[in-house]
């Protein structure tokens, strides 16, 4: 099956999404919530827009199955406008504290900002605040609602790798957070510390085990 992306003809396998096809072929499309193994794309971050010739408006590429002969543009002004708006909206609820952030230089958001050629601030939108603590204590790990972009990767891996989902969404709308549920009859802590699927997959450092260096520092700073 052949598709054309930005003038380049790619040979791709059937049944995959345009986003996957592009990433496989070294064409970067900004994304936060895409997980290959998911049966149905979560499609919540709204960053992976592309323009398909013959379609009236840009479409999210994670939800778009490849079709033979598809002609795709990843960088039209309209695509970029939507991506930049989505990114700035995310950043308006995600104050960047690069120095103390546990992801450090590995930050997906920084990579996307650089790719889109925008800063890490939310302008022209204002910063949005929620009445929530900076860190929520999940027992042996911390969750930061401000760092979290609600990509739901952690929820997915927790469910598929443990068979028993311990993470889920709580609250609604702008107040949505990831919550943690513990089985009181099981030694969840030990299991979780050995698993670490959620903390490993989190693209923004919103979930971190307490034993990581950075968090300890933050922890000390908070208690001090």
């Amino acid at each position: 099956m052949k598709i054309t992306v930005d003038g380049k003809v790619l040979e791709v396998e059937e049944g995959i999404s345009v986003l996957e096809a592009c990433l496989q072929n070294g064409i970067f499309i900004p994304n936060l919530c895409f997980l290959k193994e998911r049966e149905r794309p979560h499609a919540s971050c709204r960053l992976c827009f592309v323009q398909v010739e013959g379609m009236p408006t840009p479409t999210t590429s994670c939800t778009l199955p490849v079709k033979d002969g598809m002609v795709i543009h990843t960088n039209t002004p309209e695509v970029r406008r939507l991506q930049k708006t989505a990114f700035k909206l995310i950043m308006s609820g995600h104050p960047c504290h690069a120095k103390t952030c546990p992801v450090g230089k590995n930050c997906t958001l920084m990579k996307i900002a650089k790719f889109l050629g925008v800063g890490l601030g939310p302008k022209p939108y204002e910063r949005l605040d929620r009445e929530m603590p900076d860190l929520i204590d999940f027992g042996f790990m911390y969750y930061s609602p401000y760092r979290c972009v609600l990509c739901a990767k952690c929820i997915h891996v927790c469910k598929t790798q443990n068979g028993k989902p311990l993470l889920t969404f709580a609250r609604r709308g702008f107040e949505t957070i990831v919550a943690f549920f513990q089985d009181p009859l099981e030694n969840t802590e030990e299991k979780c510390i050995n698993c670490r699927a959620c903390t490993n997959i989190c693209p923004t450092g919103a979930l971190v085990l307490k034993d990581t260096e950075n968090v300890e520092r933050e922890d000390e700073a908070q208690t001090a």
Binding site: S44, L47, T85, L89, E126, L128, L150, R171, F174, T176
Partner: peptide
């Protein structure tokens, strides 16, 4: 804005900005 489920970026955060 109150009835947004909180899943996608535009609705969750965008409508909040519009309302503000």
């Amino acid at each position: 804005q109150k009835e947004s489920c909180g899943k996608c970026t535009f609705c969750r955060i965008g409508t909040k900005h519009l309302l503000n």
